[in-house]
Design a protein around this nucleic acid. Structure first.
Length: 427
RNA sequence: GGAGAGGUGGCAGAGUGGUCGAAUGCGCCUGACUCGAAAUCAGGUAUACAUGAAUAAUGUAUCGUGGGUUCAAAUCCCACCCUCUCCGCCA
């Protein structure tokens, strides 16, 4: 959520900045709502003040044993007007809230302005794509003989699910364990285990609701409020600090969580249908930081570096992209995507997305800290994949495949595989 | 699933219709005392929103959440959520 003061002070300027990410702010609507709100709120509060003071007078008069009938008559007429105004105020505040909740974050001035993915800017590249002396297979062809099974997954669940067996399942687990251990031991993150089902407030806090409900899996519960399967650990982990006032010396908070992620992928029909690139369920190791505002720029670089470290340790070539205004997520103020080299697609594909959100999520969550002046101030939040486990598996299969169909296990993963060096059929 | 207890400020804990945003204690902050500290004493110490240049002042709202009764609700009524205890079930 944006600071409403920004809109009050200069809605046109805000609209201009939002336009760079393709969002059309209805300035007229805002101005109208704000005008109405101001009038109604001022009037309502004046009436409430009148009622309160009169009620107190009644109490005082009664205590003195005086006749309260005249004052009662005075306040009686207030009731209806007040009730009507309170109702109108609640309505307009709800309307304003709906409008505000649907406005995306302002892009940081450093974000390249652009209209599509094509305008993202490559800022770094690491590793040399391997030169193959045989025809490369994609991860489906490499993985299927090794235990990657989409047919059975489709039977028990449907499209966009996968099932792993044997060494393939173990390699998947090894990747997640390795990432978790790297971030806790090398990068100073605290491992957390979190709910995979969350309530609507949590989804609202990080920005998935109200706008992107169709991307989520909702779980109805008889007689109870429905819950949502998390689309990323960002939701439960970031919301850990909701409605909290943190001590300054508690910051920064750094959390890492390994969770499954569930996405409906509505609107992605026909896209990445082959393989496990785009699934309804995938595992991800997520990094989350809660920091002081002054630290958030540095924290984004740092956090992105932590995700990069995993790619380097896995010896996977990648490039770092600064997303342009139009390509960033709703809540993001600035985003780097890390794209891993996939030889079969002969291209780089997203494997991590690292974003800073400024106070956008904190405002929705009411997550604050006591700053140096002793004032309560909204924290800044950041998160990034470190990394998407499913896509990391894809990358390992494709980049480390051998002519005979086996796959070399990256050195850092071998300890997690009981020392196994080569993943072969029947391994 | 059955039975019961409870949710009040950073914490503990009063408050059952009126001057209660809320006693008291602890904690914390400031000052006095002290060479300094402890002890003691005095004062202060919630959040959000509105009007506003304001971290001034004033007002409004908030005692789990949402509704209701009333001129007036922490206090009465209803629904829900959460926590705890016992029994049952269960990984």
């Amino acid at each position: 959520m944006l600071d409403i003061q920004l809109l009050r002070n200069d809605a046109e300027a805000v609209a201009k900045r939002l336009a760079t990410r393709g969002y059309v702010l209805d300035v007229q609507l805002f101005t109208r709502l704000e005008g109405e709100r101001k009038a109604i709120q001022t009037r309502t509060q004046a009436l409430q003040a009148k009622r309160n003071s009169t009620s107190k007078a009644i109490g005082a008069a009664k205590a003195r044993g005086e006749d309260v009938a005249p004052i009662m008559a005075e306040v009686a007429s207030l009731g209806e007007a007040l009730a009507a105004d309170e109702l109108a105020l609640a309505k307009i505040q709800a309307d304003m809230n709906t409008l505000l909740s649907g406005i995306p974050n302002l892009p940081d001035p450093a974000v390249p302005v652009g209209g599509s993915e094509a305008d993202n800017v490559e800022v770094a590249r690491w590793g040399m794509p391997r030169v193959f002396d045989f025809a490369v297979n994609d991860h489906v062809d490499v993985g299927t003989p090794l235990g990657l099974d989409f047919e059975t997954a489709a039977k028990v669940a449907g499209a966009r699910f996968s099932l792993l067996r044997g060494g393939m399942a173990r390699l998947h687990r090894a990747l997640a364990q390795f990432m978790l251990d790297t971030h806790t031991a090398q990068h100073g993150y605290t491992e957390v285990y979190v709910p995979y089902l969350v309530n609507a407030q949590a989804m609202h806090g990080t920005g998935q609701l109200p706008k992107f409900e169709e991307d989520l899996f909702a779980v109805p519960r008889a007689g109870l409020e429905q819950m949502y399967l998390i689309p990323t650990a960002e939701v439960p982990v970031t919301n850990m600090v909701r409605e909290q006032i943190l001590a300054r010396d508690a910051l920064p908070l750094r959390f890492v969580a390994h969770t499954p992620c569930f996405r409906s992928e509505a609107g992605a029909y026909g896209r990445d249908t082959r393989g496990m690139i785009r699934q309804h369920q995938f595992d991800k190791v997520e990094l989350v930081q809660i920091v002081e505002p002054e630290q958030s720029d540095a924290a984004l670089e740092e956090l992105t570096g932590h995700a990069e470290a995993v790619l380097r340790l896995l010896e996977l070539p990648y490039r770092k992209m600064a997303l342009c205004t139009r390509d960033m997520g709703f809540s993001s103020q600035r985003t780097y995507d890390l794209e891993v080299w996939l030889p079969a697609q002969n291209t780089y594909r997203e494997i991590s997305s690292c974003s800073s959100f400024g106070s956008f999520q904190a405002r929705r969550m009411q997550a604050r800290y006591r700053n140096e002046q002793g004032k309560n101030e909204l924290v800044h939040t950041l998160n990034g994949s470190g990394l998407a486990v499913g896509r990391a598996l894809v990358a390992v299969l494709e980049n480390f495949q051998q002519a005979d169909g086996s796959v070399v296990i990256p050195e850092v993963l071998r300890a997690y595989m009981g020392g196994l060096v080569l993943l072969k059929r029947d391994a």
